[in-house]
Amino acid sequence: MHSQPFTPETIAALATAYPLAPRHLQHRIADHPLLQLDALAALARRLRPESIEFNAATDLPLGIRNDETPYTGLDVHQTIAQIESAGSWVLLKTIDQDPAYAQLMRDVLATIEPVVEPRTGKMMRLEGFIFISSPGAVTPLHFDPDYNILFQARGSKTMTFFPAGDTEMIPDPFFEQYFNGGPRNLSWREEWADRGQPIRVTPGEAIYVPILGPHWVKVDDEVSISLSLTWRSEWSFHHADACRFNSRLRKLGLSPSSPRGYPGGNRLKSYAQRALVRAERMLGRGTE
């Protein structure tokens, strides 16, 4: 890896967008040995089974539900070996459980701390993910609960973004069910297409992906390898707990106000949710 994964110009470009807007970036880690297909096949053998997802990924509707996603009949190792023709998508999750990948993640994210921490505070819960995708693979419309930079290492893809505050695309009850363990794939309406902002990346390019913003992804006509490095903030944890608290209120027949978007705070609802969880745990222990 180069001594610095980003140029000063790229750091400056991230600073103009973070944390609310997507931004096309440049990087210097596309040729890193850990991001080559043979290294990733070996990583898949080392990861815990729960850290791997794979399924069919071509010709999927943008609004497909998580439980409707088809499988190809191949196991993950066969899928990686046949990725050019498998019509599949492999996700290696929390790759930071592997020491070499954890070091790569820390080295890269440390370079953007001067941009991130003055705005959203300490970078928390750092995690790494790798996507290995067949030509034409589609990742349906969804959102992420964390801040994310996606680094393209092989092939090319287009990520299409929609505004994070669009409550028609993500109504409050959807956030509430997600943060209580529900799926994150969203429904799709064709009339939403014009709202999208497409950003295409090739090897050596990256995208900053804003937290909570709906997006979908389409791989071009060759195999794609992407590294996704993510982090959370105190604000993001308060937002998630406010959504969980609103879910409680909704079950009581109330219509709670939406959690506040950044930089607005959600501490009151968040602390109420955390207090209720602690009380429930104490009551649960007391009746055992």
Rank of each mutant, 00 (worst) to 15 (best):
I132L: 05
Y271M: 14
D59Y: 04
L254G: 14
L276I: 10
L91R: 14
T10R: 07
D146K: 09
S270I: 08
L283Y: 07
I29D: 09
Y208F: 15
C243S: 07
E113H: 08
Q273I: 10
R195L: 14
L229A: 15
V209Q: 00
L62Y: 12
A12Q: 15
R281N: 10
R48M: 11
M282F: 11
R278F: 09
V115A: 12
A86R: 05
A100F: 08
M282L: 12
I225D: 08
D59M: 05
P118Y: 12
I149L: 02
W192R: 03
G73F: 04
I170R: 07
S258V: 09
N66H: 13
W188I: 08
R195M: 13
R119Q: 13
E117F: 04
R195S: 11
L62D: 08
N180M: 10
Y101M: 07
L252M: 11
L92S: 15
M123F: 03
A57T: 00
P145K: 00
W188H: 08
F179M: 09
L37N: 01
L62W: 11
T10S: 13
Q103T: 14
S134W: 00
R260F: 05
A240Q: 01
C243V: 10
W216H: 10
L104M: 11
F174W: 06
A81W: 07
V138I: 14
L254I: 13
Q97H: 07
E53S: 03
D144H: 02
M124D: 05
A206Y: 10
R23G: 00
M1C: 04
L35Q: 12
M105A: 15
V277W: 10
S85W: 14
A86S: 04
A44M: 03
E127S: 01
T16A: 08
H142E: 05
L186E: 04
L74C: 14
E234M: 05
I225M: 05
A240W: 02
V90G: 09
F161H: 11
M1F: 04
I149W: 05
E113P: 04
E9L: 02
V116H: 13
